[in-house]
Design a protein around this nucleic acid. Structure first.
Lengths: 218, 218
DNA sequence: CCATTTATGCCACTGAGTGGCATAAGCGTG
DNA sequence: CACGCTTATGCCACTCAGTGGCATAAATGG
């Protein structure tokens, strides 16, 4: 057990989290464009100026769950044992570990809301993609620092594939979660994290097959 | 030879192109954030209201060259012969053909400026990625219409790989073009389109190898 | 030449995002 | 506990992207 963090720090994290929760709730109810920052700040009783000290823009606040996951992924990458096994497997493991660390039930709910918003709001989707790419750059940097990588396009392409697989997995996961309200059991209200992990694993496994895919005309 | 398009249509295309050229020039000189829309519109002698009838936002106007290329790609996809050859090869060919159709020397210059801007301006990069993704959705739609595709993740993943390869090729092309000013010959002022095509071909060829990539610790 | 359609201009407005500066809330010291 | 010191916050005014409404001008078709 670590010693309690400074009082001030806790307050910061509390307002930060309050802003995230309020944003996901309000955006979910009235849509991203249907809520002004002034309203959001009013809700949390914080000035707009303060909002921008916590987040870079209106989009950022609603993407926090995904951001946290990727941040954990980069941390994981620093310490994961890097013997000579395939890079794809290495990255896959790191992401699954990060997911396991950061994702509890509350996270799953937030992540679902976040993804839904990024689907329905093009500016959020754009920011989301941009964030994935910048994370990917950090990923390449970490790999180059820890490993003896070839200096060509392949590591970067591999990173793009990982992101593609992740995004596709989240998409399928969120879509499946949407078909839930018909289920009578109240015990399974939200999609579980393991389900997302399984989807991601499957999607990564499908990567090689997609390269050689053929199809006949109708 | 097609009959001359209506007079009015020509005027529209002229103002549109004028806006694009002025935007690339001004943004290139003073940076994306250093130019207001009012200034840009003043330059072309057009009202801001009119600007927004041609483009969806400030970012759009500077991404026109890349947009044109992808639009041509989608057109090409509709008519390209689709026998049972690998989808990746199909898409690669369609993109190379589209590039060949749309890209002359003037295009190369504009595309270079456009890419530089998207590198230095995060909001442009975000919009660029978003546009690539939405193009990808259209791509999948076209393929499903013309071909008997499996209904799983693979076509989509393949599309993401194509985009990744394209983006990486453009990045390398633009970087190589930046190292030109030292060359004495004035006959090669701008990077040629064939060079970009070759880079794209190479990057696509590197896709399978990236999946099986391994690396040892330093 | 006239009527219809379509592009443009003008004006006022909302809302995101920023800079500057004053104030208050933690925090370490005596 | 009282004192400065640091750091977070609030408030205000401002710029600029983007939108809606309505009047005007220009092309088109007869």
């Amino acid at each position: 057990m670590t010693t309690a963090p400074p009082l001030r720090e806790r307050k910061k994290q509390r307002t930060r989290q309050a802003l995230i929760d309020a944003a996901l709730r309000l955006f979910g109810d009235r849509g991203f464009g249907g809520v002004t920052l002034d309203e959001l700040c009013e809700e949390v009783e914080v000035s707009k100026r303060t909002f921008f000290r916590y987040f870079e823009g209106k989009e950022d606040v609603a993407m926090a769950p995904l951001h946290d996951m990727w941040r954990a992924f980069l941390v994981e990458l620093e310490t994961i044992p890097a013997d000579g096994r395939p890079l794809l497997e290495l990255m896959e493991t790191a992401l699954l570990t990060a997911l396991d660390r950061v994702a509890d039930d509350a996270w799953a709910g937030r992540a679902l809301l976040s993804y839904r918003l990024s689907e329905s709001t093009s500016s959020m989707n754009a920011h989301n993609l941009h964030f994935c790419e910048s994370t990917m750059c950090s990923l390449i940097e970490v790999l180059h620092r820890r490993l003896d990588l070839p200096d060509d396009a392949r590591p970067r392409l591999l990173g793009d594939m990982l992101v593609a697989a992740w995004r596709h997995a989240v998409g399928g996961w969120a879509a499946a979660a949407g078909d839930r309200p018909a289920v009578p059991e109240p015990a399974v209200p939200e999609p579980a994290v393991p389900e997302l992990a399984a989807r991601f694993r499957d999607t990564v496994a499908a990567l090689p097959g997609s390269l050689t895919l053929t199809a006949d005309p109708r």
